[in-house]
Nucleic acid binder design. Sequence first.
DNA 1: CAAGCATATATGCACTGAGCATATATGCAC
DNA 2: GTGCATATATGCTCAGTGCATATATGCTTG
Lengths: 270, 270
Amino acid sequence: MLSAYMLGEEKGGGMGKQKSKTKKTKAPSADEAAFLAGHRLDAFPRPSVAVDVVILTVRAAALFVCLHERSDHPAKEQLALPGGFMRIEESLDEAARRIVKEKAGFDDIFLEQLYTFADPGRDPRGRVITVAHVALIEAARFDASPCPKGRIEVPWPGETGGPVDVFVDSDGPHSPIELAFDHRDILGTAVRRLRGKLDYTPIGFQLLPAEFTLRALQDVHEAVRGEQVNKDSFRRRMLASGHLEATGSHERDVTWRPAELYRFIRRSAV
Amino acid sequence: MLSAYMLGEEKGGGMGKQKSKTKKTKAPSADEAAFLAGHRLDAFPRPSVAVDVVILTVRAAALFVCLHERSDHPAKEQLALPGGFMRIEESLDEAARRIVKEKAGFDDIFLEQLYTFADPGRDPRGRVITVAHVALIEAARFDASPCPKGRIEVPWPGETGGPVDVFVDSDGPHSPIELAFDHRDILGTAVRRLRGKLDYTPIGFQLLPAEFTLRALQDVHEAVRGEQVNKDSFRRRMLASGHLEATGSHERDVTWRPAELYRFIRRSAV
DNA sequence: CAAGCATATATGCACTGAGCATATATGCAC
DNA sequence: GTGCATATATGCTCAGTGCATATATGCTTG
C-alpha cells in the first residue's frame, strides 16, 4: 500500500524524471488551488503527536527534574515527565510552554527542542510520537513549583548516553523509581544534550539566578558533567569567555570570605 | 481553513493493529485494559507526520545536497528535500531509510535525526509536521544517484544558523533556487548541526570513502566549516585523535608526491 | 637525464590555555 | 586575636596550536 502514504508525492517511484524547471511562484495557481481543495490529508492513518518537557535544575551539586503524577491510564498514578498532546493550531514551542505552565507552573522559562521519540509501541494507547523538549530553570524557582521532584543519577560517563536513574528523595534512600513510557530514555537524552552543549554555549547560565558566584557556576558545570572540574582554569576560562560581568557586590550570610557576584551577558559578536 | 483538517474522525481507523507491540510497558491490569479498550486517540485532531532527509556530501571543497523534484502540488515541479509521510507501523528511522532508498537510491547510509519542524502553516495542505533527518555519504556514491544535486552556500559564519542558499550548477551561474516548504531552513539547521558535531565526534568520516588521505579529510572539514583550517595542526590533531589507522598504501594518479591512505577506526574507549 | 614544480611529511619554536602549587585576602566562630 | 574555610591572585609546567623551515617524492619539462 505504498500509494496510500505517498499523497502529494510522486506515485510511480521512478527517480530520474526531469521535467523542465518552470518558474515557480508562491501564489497558488488555479490548478494548485483545485488540488488543495480536493486534498484530504486525513485519508490515511496519522499518529498522535505529544510534547514532553524535561524541566531541569541544579541543586546541591545534583541534577533534579520536575515530574508529574499521571491521573489516568496508561501508567496511572505513576510518575512521568510533564507532557500532553499538541493541539492542532499551536506550534511545538507553544505546546511545550503551555504544558510547562499547566503542569509545573512556570511562566517564563528557557526552552529548547530535544528529540522526537517515535518507536512503535512506546505508548500502549496506540501510535503516539512525542517531541521531547528541555527546559532549564534556576533552583529557587524550581523549588517553588508544586511538582514532584526527582534527583537524577547518570550511570554513564561523558556523552555515552543511555537511560538515567531517578530518585525521589522524600521516600528515603531506595532504588530508582520507574517512569512512565520511555521517559527514562528521554531524560538520558536530555542530560547527554546538556553535557554536549555546556562547554560550547552559554546554556549553563539558564540554571542560575540573575546574579551568581563563580562557585555556583562551577557547581552547575560539575552537576551536569557529573565530575569535578579544575577550579582555577574554570575561573579563568569563564572570566575570559566574555559572558561574565562583575556586579561589584558580594554574596552574604556565608561563613567564609564572600565571593563576588557576576551577571551573565550575551557576548556581542564572535 | 483549519476546519479542513479538523474533521476529526479517521477514515482508515488503523490504530488497533499495532497495539500489541507494547514491549516497554508492563502488562496492563484489568482496569487499565478496560481503559485502553474504550480509549480513542483519534477523538482529537492529529497532524500528519512527514519525514524529510538532508542527504549531504562533500565534493570539490563544497557541500552538496540530494534533492527531489515534486511531481504534485503543492510546489509542483519545484525542488525539495526527499521526503514522505511516516507510515503508521514504522519507526522514524525506518521511514527515513525507506525515503532515502526510494528517492535517492541509497541503501546503506549514515543517518541521524535532526529536528522536528512544526510551524502551523508550513504546508498549505494543512497541519503537517516533519521530522527532519541528516544523512551523510561519500562523494562517489552521491554522484552515482540520479537525484538532482544542489550546491550549498552558507551565508553565515560558525554556528550562527539560518537558511542557506542552494545552486544547481547545471544551469550555469545564477541566483539560488527556491526550495519547497521550509526546506531551506531545514538545510540550514542540518549544516549548523554538522558544524557543531564535526570537531567533537567522528561524523566527518561518514563523508569519505573507506580509505582517504589526510588532505581529503581536511577538505571535508573545510567544506563543512566554510573556512580554511591550519594544515599542520589539523594533521597532528587527527593523527592524535586515535581515529586514524595508516594503511601503508598511497594514493595514485596524482601529479605530486602521493599521500598515504588512512582508514577510520572507531576509538576503543574514552 | 637534470631541473623545476607541487605536494606530502617532519621538525623546531613561540604562544596560549589547562592543571597544579603557592601566597594572600576576607569573612565567621571561638 | 587565632583558627578556619573559602575567595582571589600569581607563577610554573605541560600540551596543543599556528607558523616557519627543511626534506621527501611524485610528475612535467626542456
